[in-house]
Write a protein that binds this DNA or RNA. Structure first.
Lengths: 268, 268
DNA sequence: CGACCGATTGACACAGCTCAAATGAAGTGG
DNA sequence: CCACTTCATTTGAGCTGTGTCAATCGGTCG
């Protein structure tokens, strides 16, 4: 069921949704030279330093750090439509591999650079994407600090669903998740044993149907409640993204002439 | 002791160290319009959406997320020389404030945009900076998953030291740290009570002298060992940054003609 | 059929949390 | 210069979510 045609489709979908693309932009992306490859789980993606980026076409890619002794910790998860920087894992102890079978497309960084030179909008999209990745990472930090194991896994599912839907997948909340429970553990910072208990708990609550390679979400609202999920951070970097909590500073000095020119300071 | 002159000095230092700047670049940065302000702790930095960025001149800025009920979780820490995006905290529940007294400079984003148009190298520096921030966040994720409380705090100190030294501060490992132990707790994802116990443990081991507003590191090597610290990730985004673990793929098929053109896949 | 990997279960240990209270330090007003 | 407040640090004592260890079970593949 792995997609082979139009490998850039999801990337275009995502960027279009993020900041909007012209048809010229889309054509430019479609012309990128891609070397499409199938990757199996546990196969390390090597890199020729800084020479290629890696577009996820289908499946999941993760950057992980090897833990001394054994095991790994996944520090970032890439979904279809994401562009992973292959030179990041050139850090010692870091590596990149697929979770479950995946399809990727290698793109010469030089081609990407040329792409950005030819379209300021696409460059902007790239920046927006970077910002979004940052927002996702920060939410992850929050998750690790303030959510318990069940909350973390639930949050992961919520995020996954929305990110997949942003590239036209996971419609009717049915996710392809060809991960082992060890993968889930490495993603959420819990032990394998506990990951199992969490999965069972989510099943018991009837919020998900968690199969070997598939997750069907039955009760989105409850899942969101368990995860304490809010999708706001997934909109970071979006065009026309405006503050939605400006009310917090309401009651302060009304925007006087100079207050309008520089940020206000608000007593917490 | 707060610095008032040449507010962009640390930024220039950092970018120069990161990718190298020409004197033209430095002059461009020096010409940026800055609105310098003193900020006290617990004062929220408000934002006019997307209108300003915020250069940390002295002290620390943090982005945090409010925890339901009470408390906050710090998701990102900005040091002198860092440029914080003021529109990030426009996410609901997010905010930005200083840890201890700080000096910041507001920069209109429009000016930054113009800056990048006039110098491709500076734009590149900005990207490198974004990448570095990402690497720091990913290391933080790792820390939260795989280091115990003492390790996390030790790692925070190590990172702090190197990042400060990159902007000419913290020479001879004496750090200005005007934080409360609650701040440390919010940074590392532990409770205030436990933060106290960790600080005491570090003192007891004789690795640091942790005063109210200052930390003096006495035994760097031990601190590094406790933190399991490696500074590699702090070099992410650097110019000429090359893979240092290429040896891992040594022994694979020698770089054949086509292997040289696209990344290799290595059995983990 | 045997080997292997992932899922599952149970028993136990402990790092770190919570609650609660005492102590210390810094500032404020009289 | 002294009460008084406020905030940060410190200490103690249980409690609990997760980790660890160790089996068992089930499916898959050669």
């Amino acid at each position: 069921m792995l997609e082979i045609g139009r490998p850039y489709r999801k990337l275009v979908l995502k960027l279009d949704r993020l900041i909007g693309l012209t048809s010229d932009d889309k054509a430019l992306i479609a012309q990128l030279p891609l070397a499409v490859r199938n990757v199996r789980a546990h196969v390390k993606l090597a890199y020729l330093p800084s020479e290629n980026s890696c577009l996820v076409v289908d499946g999941y890619l993760c950057e992980y750090k090897v833990v001394e002794g054994c095991g790994r910790q996944i520090v970032q998860l890439h979904l279809p439509g994401d562009v992973a920087d292959l030179h990041v894992p050139s850090l010692p102890g870091h590596a990149m591999s697929a979770l479950g079978p995946a399809v990727v497309a290698f793109i010469p960084q030089r081609s990407l650079a040329r792409l950005f030179e030819s379209s300021a909008r696409l460059q902007h999209a790239y920046l927006a994407q970077l910002q979004l990745d940052g927002a996702i990472l920060r939410e992850r930090v929050f998750s690790l600090c303030r959510r318990d194991a069940v909350g973390r896994v639930a949050h992961l599912l919520c995020e996954l669903t929305l990110r997949l839907q942003a590239v036209g997948m996971a419609l009717n909340q049915s996710l392809s998740v060809p991960w082992t429970q060890t993968d889930v553990a490495d993603l959420t910072g819990i032990s394998t044993v506990h990951a199992n208990r969490v999965v069972q708990e989510l099943r018991r609550l009837g919020v998900v149907d968690w199969g070997t390679k598939h997750v069907q979400i039955h009760d989105w609202d409850t899942l969101v409640r368990i995860a304490n999920f809010s999708d706001a951070y997934l909109r970071a970097g979006r065009r026309g993204h405006v503050a939605s909590n400006l009310d917090e500073t309401v009651g302060e000095a009304p925007p006087a002439a100079d207050a309008a020119r520089e940020p206000a300071l608000t007593r917490a």
